[in-house]
Amino acid sequence: MASRITQRPRDLWGRALGSLSAVLVALSVTMIFLYVPSDQVQGAVQRLFYIHLPAAWLAYFSFFLIFVSSIAYLARRHPRWDRLARSAAELGFVFTTIVLLTGSIWGRPIWGTWWTWDARLTTTLILWFIYLAYFMLRAYVSDPERAARYAAVLGIVGFVDVPIIHMSVRWWRTLHPQPIVVRAEGPAMPESMLLTLAVTMVAFMVLYLFLLVEKYRVERMKDELAELRLQHSG
């Protein structure tokens, strides 16, 4: 039975994106570890940056995607928008976790601490909590249509709130300066680093698109399965 499911014909998009992201991720990993030189000040740990930055970008982009599909869902009430929001939320949560983890690992040797209540860090942590709330809200609502509506409401309110959270946290810090380990500002980035970052960025975006397409497909199958179950039980 399992083999029949895996043999389900996949469309060209999924295959193309999958192969392309595999190649690009392999290329960027090679560049991060073999091509790009180590940072003179920070050493090897700086290589995390090439993963950290694209992940951060996608973590916030996911929330934007949730915002747009939440509005579309409330306006049109088509389940496809909710599926998109669900898929983006799961990816956003993964990438936010990656950002927090890589940042923490980098911060330990460079800042001398795993965590500091800097504005960007705090905002990303709160973003992570909002994602968590989003999943909990969905999980605790039994009716799927209601879960979709509630999640859309949270998606809209949350997205509008994130910049305000960032602003308030920044003011909170600027008004109350604390002796924190100052980030060593290195020289302008050499070309090889920029190139590596660009390749990784593209690789992450293609990978993201691939995961989004696949996740969306899984969500659609889940919906179909739920519908079939309903038909056969009723």
Binding site: I126, F129, I130, L132, A133, M136, L137, Y140, V141, S142, R146, Y150, V153, L154, V157, G158, D161, I164, I165, M167, S168, V169, W171, W172
Partner: peptide
């Protein structure tokens, strides 16, 4: 109002409210 219809409403309300109300708390 949303949390009241869910299964774990006492748990869910603070989980929803506290992160989003952070600017209010700070200011």
């Amino acid at each position: 109002v949303m949390a009241a219809t869910t299964r774990a409403r006492e748990v869910l309300l603070p989980v929803l409210l506290f992160p989003l109300a952070l600017p209010v708390v700070i200011s």
